[in-house]
Design a protein around this nucleic acid. Structure first.
Lengths: 152, 152
DNA sequence: CAGTAACCGTTGGGATAACCAACGAAAACC
DNA sequence: GGTTTTCGTTGGTTATCCCAACGGTTACTG
C-alpha cells in the first residue's frame, strides 16, 4: 500500500495509482450507490432528489422553497422540479404563505409522510447492500470519515 | 451516532438520517472531488476520463480499445471520444494492428507520457486538498474502505 | 470450406445530475 | 420613495453514464 513513488510517475503503475485516488474511488462507489438506491426507490416512483426533498419537508414542517434550497444545498431549479413531481403525486402541497406572499409554504400530506417512511426503509436496505463487504464498525467508520470530508 | 430508529421513521430526523447514508455522502464527496480534479486538470486541457484513458495507455503499452474498455470499465463510446481528443492533442496515436485488422493499437507519444506525469501530479494535489481534513492514517483507511466497496 | 457466431471500432440517441443566467413579483432596506 | 434583496420559476448548458445498432473482421463449427 505504501508506494515508493506517490506521484505515480512510474509508467507501469500509472493506472493503478489513479484508480486508488479518492476522486476515482468515490466516483465509482457513488455511482453504484446511486444505482442501488434509485432501483429501490423506483418501487415508489421517486428518485434520490425526491427522497431528500420529501424528507426535508416532512422533517421541518411547512417551509419555504428557498429554505429547502439552503438546507439541502441543491439548485433552486431542481427543487422546483422535484416539488412539482411530489405535488403531482399528492405527497406534498404548496400553499401561499400569508405572512410573505413571495413564499410558498410547503408541507407534506399524510400520504407523503407514509411514502417517506417506505422510501427511507428502501434506501436503508439499498445502503446495506452497498456496505455489505464491510463490518458494522467499518461501515460507521466510513460514514464518519465521509461526513468529515463533506462538511466544509 | 447510534440512532434508536435506524429507519429514520421519526419525522424530525428524517433529513439528517438520509444525509448520513453513504448514498448521499459519497454523492456529495464524489461531486466535490470531481470538481477539484477537473479544475486542476483544466491546466492541461484534459478531464478525468482523459486522464484515466491516458494513464492506461501509458501503463499498458500499445493495446486495443476494447482492452481499454475492459480495464477501465468505461463505455466503449466514451473511450472513442476520449481517444479522439487525446489523439487530436498528439498525446496518443492509433495504428492498425497488423495481427488483427479489427483492432487499433493505441500507444502514447512522448508528449503523452510527459503530460500524464503532470496530470497525475495535479490530480494528486487535488486529492490532497480533498482529504485535508483527515490525518494520513485516516486517509489511507478511507481509501482502503472505498476500494473494498468497489471491488465487486 | 461454407455458414454462423463473436468481436472490434464507431456512431447515434437518451437519461440523469448538477449548475448558471435571468425574469416578474414581492418584501426589506435606507 | 427609490434601491436592493429575496422568492419562485423558466430556460439553457455541461458532464457523466448507458444502450442499440452498424460495417468490417476474425473465430468457431459442422
Amino acid at each position: 500500500m505504501a508506494r515508493t513513488d506517490p506521484t505515480g510517475a512510474t509508467p507501469a503503475h500509472a493506472l493503478e495509482h489513479i484508480q486508488s485516488l479518492p476522486s476515482w474511488l468515490t466516483g465509482r462507489v457513488a455511482t453504484r450507490a446511486r444505482e442501488l438506491v434509485a432501483e429501490a426507490l423506483a418501487a415508489e416512483g421517486l428518485r434520490l432528489g425526491h427522497h431528500a426533498v420529501l424528507a426535508a419537508v416532512v422533517a421541518h414542517g411547512p417551509l419555504a422553497q428557498a429554505e429547502l434550497v439552503r438546507r439541502l444545498d441543491l439548485d433552486a431549479k431542481d427543487v422546483v422540479v422535484h416539488l412539482d413531481h411530489l405535488q403531482q403525486r399528492g405527497l406534498v402541497q404548496r400553499r401561499p404563505d400569508p405572512a410573505d406572499r413571495r413564499k410558498n409554504a410547503v408541507s407534506a400530506t399524510e400520504e407523503g409522510i407514509a411514502t417517506l417512511a417506505r422510501c427511507t426503509e428502501l434506501a436503508e436496505q439499498a445502503n446495506n447492500r452497498l456496505l455489505e463487504p464491510l463490518s458494522t464498525a467499518e461501515q460507521q467508520l466510513l460514514i464518519s470519515l465521509l461526513a468529515r470530508l463533506q462538511q466544509d
